[in-house]
C-alpha cells in the first residue's frame, strides 16, 4: 500500500463528514462506525456456529456474536480453504438473537464483504483466520456502510488497517490454539509502540511513520492522543477468565473469544465467567470466584509445534 503524507487523518474524515452533513441524517460515517465499537467496550464477543450457540452466548451476557461455519480450532484440524459463512446460517443467527451479529470475510475479499453487508451483519471481521483472497491488498473499507474490525500484530499494521477504513482493531493472537501467548505479545507490542510514539519530538514522527509503514497523519494522531483513534480489542487464544483479565490489564478494551468457549466442557458457564472477568478484570477475588467449577477448558496447542504455514498471525500485509 502507499504511505501517502497527503492522506487525510482519521479525525479529518470524521470532521468532514459532520460538516458535509449540514443537519441531514447520514449513515455509515466514521463516527457511527467507530461509535458502534465504543458500545462494545468492556464486553465479550463470542464465536458461534449455530443459532443455539448464539442463544447461549446472548444468555451469558455476550455483547455480540461472531457467526462462522467452523471455529478456528476446527479450521486448523480440518484444513482446506476457509471462506465466508453460508448466508442462510448467518440469517438464522441474526434471527435468533437481539445482540449485534458479526461475520468474517477473507482478507481482501471485497465481494464477500459486499454480501455480508447486504445480509445486514452489524460488523465485518476481515480475518486472517480465513484463507486470504488477496496477497497484497486488504478491502477498501471506506466504501462500506457496515463497519470493519481487523487484526493486527503491531502498531504499524493497526494503522494501515485504520487508513483503509477499519473502525475497530483487535490483536491477532493465534486463533484456535487456546494459547494466549501471541495475543499477549501483540497487546504488549502495540502498547509499547504507542508509548514510544508519545515520547518522540514532533520532528521524529516522520521517520517513525516510515519505520511503521503507516500514514504520517495517523502516527501523529496516536503520538498526540497516546492511543489508537479506534477501539482496541484482544483476540486469538483467550480460553479462561484469567486470560481475559490479563488482556484487559494489558490495555485491551474488550475481548473476542473464539474456540475457547464452545470447545470447552461447559460453554454456558465458561461464557458467563469470561463476561464477568472482563468487567471485573482488576478484581482478583471476582476472577477467582468465577474461575471455579467451569469444567474442562479447551485443549491448547503449543505454538512451537505449529508448522509455519499454520501461523495465522502472519497473514495480512
Amino acid at each position: 500500500m502507499s504511505v501517502s503524507t497527503s492522506a487525510q487523518t482519521s479525525a479529518d474524515r470524521v470532521f468532514d463528514e459532520a460538516a458535509r452533513g449540514a443537519g441531514a441524517a447520514q449513515t455509515g460515517t466514521a463516527r457511527v462506525k467507530r461509535g458502534m465499537a465504543e458500545m462494545l467496550k468492556g464486553g465479550v464477543i463470542m464465536d458461534v456456529v449455530t443459532s443455539d450457540q448464539a442463544k447461549i452466548a446472548e444468555d451469558a451476557g455476550a455483547v455480540a456474536v461472531m457467526a462462522l461455519e467452523r471455529v478456528p480450532a476446527d479450521i486448523r484440524a480440518q484444513g482446506g480453504v476457509a471462506r465466508m459463512s453460508d448466508p442462510d446460517m448467518i440469517d438464522q443467527i441474526i434471527a435468533a438473537v437481539s445482540i449485534p451479529v458479526m461475520a468474517k470475510c477473507r482478507i481482501g475479499h471485497f465481494a464477500e464483504a459486499q454480501v455480508l453487508q447486504a445480509i445486514g451483519v452489524d460488523y465485518i471481521d476481515e480475518s486472517e483466520v480465513l484463507t486470504p483472497a488477496d496477497e497484497a491488498h486488504h478491502v477498501d473499507k471506506w466504501k462500506f456502510t457496515v463497519p470493519f474490525v481487523c487484526g493486527s500484530t503491531n502498531l504499524g499494521e493497526a494503522l494501515r488497517r485504520i487508513a483503509e477504513g477499519a473502525a475497530m482493531i483487535r490483536s491477532k493472537g493465534e486463533a484456535g490454539t487456546g494459547n494466549v501467548v501471541e495475543a499477549t505479545r501483540h497487546m504488549r507490542q502495540i502498547r509499547a509502540e504507542m508509548l514510544r510514539l508519545a515520547t518522540l519530538p514532533a520532528e521524529e514522527l516522520y521517520a517513525a511513520a516510515k519505520e511503521l509503514r503507516a500514514p504520517y497523519e495517523l502516527v501523529a494522531e496516536v503520538a498526540a492522543a497516546g492511543r489508537l483513534p479506534v477501539v482496541l480489542f484482544t483476540a486469538g487464544g483467550i480460553a479462561t477468565p484469567a486470560d481475559a483479565a490479563m488482556m484487559m490489564q494489558l490495555g485491551a478494551e474488550g475481548v473476542f473469544v473464539g474456540s475457547g468457549i464452545f470447545k470447552s466442557g461447559d460453554p454456558a458457564s465458561r461464557a458467563a465467567a469470561i463476561v464477568k472477568a472482563t468487567t471485573f478484570y482488576e478484581d482478583p477475588d471476582v476472577i477467582a470466584k468465577v474461575s471455579r467449577g467451569l469444567g474442562e477448558p479447551m485443549v491448547g496447542i503449543n505454538l512451537d509445534t505449529l508448522p509455519p504455514e499454520q501461523h495465522y498471525a502472519d497473514r495480512g500485509w
Binding site: 459532520a18 449513515t27 463516527r31 457511527v32 458502534m36 452489524d122 457496515v146 463497519p147
Partner: peptide, 27 residues
C-alpha cells in the same frame, strides 16, 4: 434497525440553548 441503519443527524432539544446538537444513533 441494525448497524447499517445507524446514523447521525442534527436535533433540536427543548431546554438546550444554541445550535442543534449532532446526535449519533447506534442500533
Amino acid at each position: 434497525g441494525r448497524q447499517v441503519d445507524s446514523f447521525e443527524s442534527d436535533i433540536e432539544l427543548r431546554g438546550i440553548a444554541g445550535p442543534p446538537l449532532r446526535a449519533v444513533f447506534i442500533r
